[in-house]
Amino acid sequence: MAPPRNRRPGFSRRAQYGLFIGYVGAIGGALIGGVLLLLSTFNPPAFAAVRGVFAEITTPIASGFDWIRRGLGSIPDGIGSYFAVHGENAELRKQIADDKLTVTRAQTLEQENRRLRAMVKLRDVTTDAIVAARLVNSSSSSTRRYATLNAGSWQGVKRGQPVRDPSGLIGQVIETSPNSARVLLLADPESIVPVRRVRDGLPAIASGRGDGQIDIRSASVATMGFQAGDTFVTSGTGGVFPPDIPVARVIRTQGDIAIAQPAVNPDALDFALVQQTFLPEPVPAPSPSASATPAAQPKAAP
């Protein structure tokens, strides 16, 4: 049999305590409300003070709940903003990388244009220029140092002609073909160039070491000391290299020999200028014709 619905809660202490607390709360709330009502009617200043106290108590709690509400409400926007910012950062990084590549290309072009302008200026002021050609390659990892020009005999390039750029001497042509030429660089052990010291005109000989540097030896009988920083240019001796072309700068000394750095690094060049030799080649003397017959001798009188 089901228990009646109007059964009293006396059988449970928990239910009794709950009802008691509910009644006490209701009666207390009614009393507090009545007191506040009377206070607001008969003594508004006191009611304002009480209201201020309650406001001081409830404001931090309300602020905390409002902060929590705003934080929970901003979570979706924060997630969306994170992904949006992440995508924008990726695009900006890609744009920065593209801009760096563009700047690098522009700097390379600017350097090449500057070298070309210097080369054009040198060609214009040099009366013995043959051709300005591109340096196709150079051997920097071998003890033999050569470079290749994309100009040859069809462009007027001949064996023995000096090769230079506005900064200094590069080497000398040793082989030619119709559209290319092989250049012996200054750093090659077979390269020998007569030079002179700029500050006092001391004659010397510059020879390659095979490691990218040059040995400088005095050409005079007296032993002359070298100093770091001494600059050497071509002297014109020998009739191959025109005078006053920068050749090398001393970086250290070893006894009577100076170790010098070439004025030009062929690996960093794009173009070079081929010049005539300083002194023209001697014109061979005409050989007497083998078919020529001696003049007839007059007969002697009887």
Rank of each mutant, 00 (worst) to 15 (best):
Q95V: 14
V24R: 05
G29P: 00
V198E: 15
I205W: 10
R217F: 08
G171C: 03
R93M: 12
G25L: 10
F47V: 02
S63P: 01
G225D: 09
F54M: 14
A147G: 09
R5Y: 13
S140V: 07
A268V: 06
V136K: 05
P282E: 12
R145Y: 00
P203N: 01
A272R: 11
G152A: 03
T127K: 13
G18D: 07
P286R: 07
I192W: 08
L202G: 04
A49I: 05
D211G: 07
R134G: 08
S167M: 06
W67P: 07
P189A: 06
R13K: 13
A15E: 12
R199E: 13
V163K: 02
G156K: 02
N89V: 14
D215K: 14
L101S: 05
A263P: 09
K121Y: 05
R209W: 00
I68F: 04
A296T: 04
V173M: 02
D244I: 08
E281R: 12
K121T: 13
I27N: 03
R13V: 11
R199F: 06
Q213C: 13
G33V: 09
A272Y: 10
V221E: 13
R144M: 00
G22W: 03
D99F: 08
P243I: 08
P4M: 11
I79A: 13
R105C: 00
V103S: 04
V24G: 01
I21T: 14
I259R: 13
L149N: 01
N137Q: 09
R182I: 07
L101E: 07
R70G: 13
T143A: 05
L101I: 02
I257D: 06
F83Y: 13
G18M: 09
G33M: 07
D124H: 12
Q276T: 11
I68V: 09
L186H: 05
S235Q: 01
I174T: 08
S139A: 02
A62C: 10
G33S: 07
R8K: 15
V53I: 11
D215C: 11
R144H: 03
G255P: 03
A48T: 10
T41G: 02
S63Y: 15
R114V: 05
P162W: 00
A268P: 03
D244G: 04
S220D: 11
L19F: 04
K299R: 15
I75V: 13
G10W: 10
I21K: 11
P246Y: 02
I68M: 08
S180M: 08
M1F: 01
G34F: 06
M1E: 06
L38P: 04
F42K: 08
I214G: 01
V247Y: 01
V131Y: 07
E56M: 10
R105G: 04
V264W: 04
R13M: 10
F226G: 10
A147Y: 01
R8H: 13
D66C: 08
G212A: 00
Q254R: 12
L186V: 04
G168E: 01
I259Y: 03
D128E: 12
F278R: 06
N89K: 15
